[in-house]
Each structure stands twice: as structure tokens, then as C-alpha cells.
Design a protein around this nucleic acid. Structure first.
Lengths: 189, 189
DNA sequence: CGACTAAGTCAACGCACATTGACATAGCTG
DNA sequence: CAGCTATGTCAATGTGCGTTGACTTAGTCG
């Protein structure tokens, strides 16, 4: 059908390991986030990526390996250090007040996280990832005595608001929004 | 081996459909809440109930039917009204500090729902259940001005801790536990 | 050009699962 | 006691899964 490869990309490069890997990873992130670890199948993921199943084994070692990488890719380090305490708290609280729609793409990542939290097979992996990219930074940011349990509390609060926002389905408005932000800020401070 | 049935129960009543059904349902509630719909297997559930697998098919029609009934049985109204503010806050905070395993049945229903949300078919239940079991009761419990957004904040915090506990996988101990409970209580109060 | 390697393909394996139907037996009923 | 039905047992079937190993081909390098 296709005689030349000048269709979409400049040089499709028939055999490109990096591109194939990336497409598998993208498909995995999508399926895992939407379906969870056990329901999403490697065959589906491979099909969505337009790739043979065996390549997943080759590039990621197996389902767990693929999931681990997809998880890492879904949790991007937050920019804690760019904020002082007050501005960060305010930013987080406002973000929480928003609806799922107008949130950035971190929504998908968080959905991924939530699904991962509900599957026993992936819980240990998630624990590790959260430690690395979430709890650790917060703990360091807090510093001082009892940084660890205090970081856990803070992480719990933030996670909770994210879940609540995910479930809520719509943004808060007007007075309700203000009250929410005010209260949430108070808790986070 | 056993000639008489006077081992554990007074009258084991060899054939009792109602009792068998109940034991299957209890085992199902436990396994589904702990492992989620996909991971929990009918064979395990049957084994835990000390029953042949085929009976599940007979009594509940199949895995979906069993899950549906277990879900119904797991949603009971929470007992917010039994507590005054302080004792409830303390109970919730301590519950949060515990590991997923040793948690009491008070919040297990929520775990059940959260895990159920993994399965695309049962996902919409989560929103409804949170409204019913968390937001509504908390809002009424709080009462007064701005009960709605304040309830959202509180619900968010509680949900967050539950998820955090789910992720953490193990109980907090010693000083960390104390600090955690103290901080969580302060936030909830 | 010719060989070597990386990239992709194909088929098969073993496993665990839910489900089903035929069979066995306990306990009640007449 | 005889027979019937609810209750429980057993074995088999089909399906989809993740994984593995041998094979084929594209692209590159000497």
C-alpha cells in the first residue's frame, strides 16, 4: 500500500527501537490508567501500540516491568522547591478546588495512581514510587523533627483532595470555592 | 477420620443451604475487599468458606452475582452519629495509623468500594457511595453555615488517609505512629 | 557486496480461571 | 421404610493470559 514513507513523519524509520518502546509505554499508561493492572492485558496494549506482544517482553521484561516504568512516567516530580510554604499551599489548594476537566494532564497520572493503589499486585510498586517522588521530596521540604510522619500526613491530605476532586467531577464555584480554598489552606499550612 | 461431628460446633448440620450461603458471602466480602474483583478468585473464596466452588455458581449465579451481593452487604451507613466530635476524630485517626490488614470493618466498606472502582463496570458506584456514605453524613454532622464545602474538605482528608494507608501497606509504629495520630487529629478537629 | 546485529514476527506452551453438567447422598415426607 | 428433592461433590471444558524460544528480515558496517 505505502510505497514511500513520507506520510506523516519525515522519516518513519521502519525499525526504530526507541519509537516502538515509546509507543508501547504510551499505550500502557493509557490502558493501565483506564483499566487497572489486572484488567489491562499485554495483548491489548500491544495492539493499541500497533506492535507485537513479544516486544513488550523484550523491552520491558514483562508485565510488571512495563507497569513499573509506566508508573514512573506517570508520576512526575512536583516542583516543591520552586515554592515557599505559603505560595505552595495556596497553589495546591486552588488546584484542588478546580474540576477534573480543567486540571492539567496530571489528572491522568493521578488516575493511574489511584488504580494502582487498588490492586494488590501493584501496591508495593506504588509504595516505592510514592516514596521516591512524593513522600521523599515533601519530607525533605519539611525538614526538621518528625519530618517523616508529618510528610505522611501532608501527603495523605493532598492525595485525599485529589481523589475527592476526581470523584466530584465538577469544579467548585463562587462562595463554596472560596470556603474550600480557605479551609484547605488552613489544613495544609 | 471423624466419626462424630462434635468437634467444633455443637451441631454442624451437615446440609444447611442458608449457612453455606452466608459463609460464602462472608468469605467473598473479605477477599473482594482485600484483593479486588479481578484478583480474588472463586476458588480461594470457596476454600476460605470451606465449600466447593460449584456451590457459588449454584447460589449466586457466578462471580458477578456474588460480587454484587457482597457489595450490597458491605455498604452499611457509618456510625457518625454515635460519636461526639472528639471521640470520632480520635477513632478515625487511629484507624488511619493502622495497617490495611488490621483495620476494623468500619472503613473496610470504603476499601471495597475503592477496589470496586477499578472494574470499569462498577466505577460509577464510587461517586454515589462517597456522596451517600461520606459527604452527606459529614455535612449533616457538621451542620451550620458552609457545611457543604467544609464537608468536602473533611471528606477529602479522610479519603486521603485511607488511600495513603492502602498504599503504605503496613502499620505505623512507636513514635511515628504517635506523631501521625496527633497531627491527623489536629487536622480533623 | 556480504556478513553481522538489532528489530520485529510467529507459534506454542503452561497455567489459572470461571463455568457447567453429570453424579452422589443426606435428610425430610408420606 | 421407600422415594424424592435439596444439598453437596467431582471432573472436565474452554478461554484468555503472560511468557518463551526459534525464526525472519531490515539496516549497518567493514
Amino acid at each position: 500500500m505505502d510505497m514511500t514513507d513520507t506520510l506523516v513523519e519525515a522519516r518513519p524509520r521502519k525499525r526504530d527501537a526507541a519509537a516502538t518502546r515509546a509507543r508501547i509505554l504510551a499505550a500502557a499508561m493509557d490502558r493501565f490508567a483506564r483499566l487497572g493492572y489486572e484488567t489491562a492485558s499485554l495483548r491489548e496494549i500491544a495492539a493499541e501500540a500497533g506492535v507485537d506482544v513479544a516486544l513488550i517482553g523484550r523491552y520491558f521484561g514483562g508485565k510488571e516491568g512495563l507497569f513499573t516504568e509506566a508508573l514512573k512516567a506517570s508520576i512526575h516530580p512536583n516542583r516543591l522547591r520552586d515554592h515557599d510554604r505559603e505560595s505552595y499551599v495556596r497553589a495546591v489548594a486552588e488546584n484542588m478546588a478546580n474540576g477534573p476537566k480543567d486540571g492539567e494532564s496530571d489528572q491522568d497520572g493521578f488516575q493511574f495512581l489511584l488504580r494502582a493503589a487498588t490492586s494488590p499486585a501493584t501496591a508495593p510498586l506504588l509504595n516505592l514510587a510514592v516514596q521516591e517522588r512524593f513522600l521523599g521530596p515533601i519530607r525533605d521540604w519539611l525538614g526538621g523533627e518528625d519530618a517523616e510522619p508529618r510528610a505522611r500526613v501532608l501527603a495523605g491530605v493532598i492525595i485525599g483532595f485529589l481523589v475527592e476532586r476526581l470523584i466530584r467531577g465538577k469544579a467548585l464555584r463562587g462562595r463554596e470555592r472560596e470556603v474550600f480554598i480557605e479551609r484547605a489552606s488552613a489544613i495544609l499550612t
